[in-house]
């Protein structure tokens, strides 16, 4: 399987994702420069964490107009897997590829620590190796990670089961105390209706090996790998 990692000016987790794809999973990986208008032979596009275009104006607001994003949109429309982590999630939300928006943390502070996440559904390409209700320990590092969507959109998201991860405590209970940034309904990650685009604020790329304190993030990457079939590449 070949991962394509988009590099915007200001991306800073591109090499973390590359390392996980190439050295932890043993798969192929390539960087995709944001000014490139096309790419080929990629099975999963990852938009990594960082501060694309300095996060000026709003996080992801300018990155969504980088030339590569047209190609990412086309790839996703043909059913290709697109995975946004942290800043990558903000870019996908700004681009309208995922619903809602990420706004300033309720506590105003940049929060950088491990949190617990509850996996809400197993039937996505990103969670195939996680039982519904599985609890993961994964770090966050963001100042604008408070998930917001208007009430009506939240209802739709729940009905269509587009919430993939919620912040919870170690026992998997979703509580106010375990919500690190004020996200509505404790939402940490969502997918599109079709399920081939997913974004999450926590960083699975930072915890894919035991030596880093948790290997829980690896399970998300392994899910992607698990569901991938070589024949798919031809269709996409």
């Amino acid at each position: 399987m070949k991962f394509g990692i988009v590099v915007f000016p200001g991306s800073n987790c591109d090499h973390d994702v590359y390392h996980v794809a190439k050295h932890v999973l043993g798969q192929e990986a390539a960087f995709l420069w944001h000014k490139d208008a096309s790419f080929a032979g990629i099975d999963c596009v990852v938009l990594p964490g960082g501060f694309a275009h300095g996060d000026y104006l709003r996080c992801g607001a300018m990155a969504r107009f980088s030339p590569i994003m047209k190609a990412v949109e086309g790839f996703a429309a043909r059913g290709g897997l697109v995975f946004g982590i942290c800043n990558g999630f903000q870019v996908l939300a700004e681009a309208g590829l995922l619903p809602g928006a990420l706004v300033r943390n309720a506590g105003l502070q940049y929060v950088c620590r491990d949190v617990y996440l509850r996996s809400e559904r197993q039937d996505t390409p990103f969670t195939a190796r996680l039982k519904q209700g599985a609890v993961l320990k994964i770090p966050i590092g963001h100042g604008e990670g408070c998930y917001y969507a208007p009430e009506e959109m939240l209802k739709e998201l729940e009905e269509r089961r587009q919430v993939v991860f919620r912040y919870c405590d170690a026992a998997g209970q979703v509580t106010a105390e375990s919500n690190p940034n004020g996200s509505l309904r404790s939402i940490a990650g969502v997918c599109n209706e079709r399920g081939n685009i997913m974004g999450m604020m926590p960083h699975p790329d930072r915890c894919a090996e035991e030596v880093l304190g948790s290997a829980d993030g690896r399970r998300i990457f392994e899910s992607i790998l698990h569901g991938w079939q070589p024949a798919r590449r031809l269709r996409i």
Partner: peptide, 14 residues
């Protein structure tokens, strides 16, 4: 400006 209903922690602090 932020829409009504969107939490504004900065405004609250001010």
């Amino acid at each position: 400006t932020l829409k009504r209903g969107v939490l504004d922690p900065q405004g609250k602090a001010v």
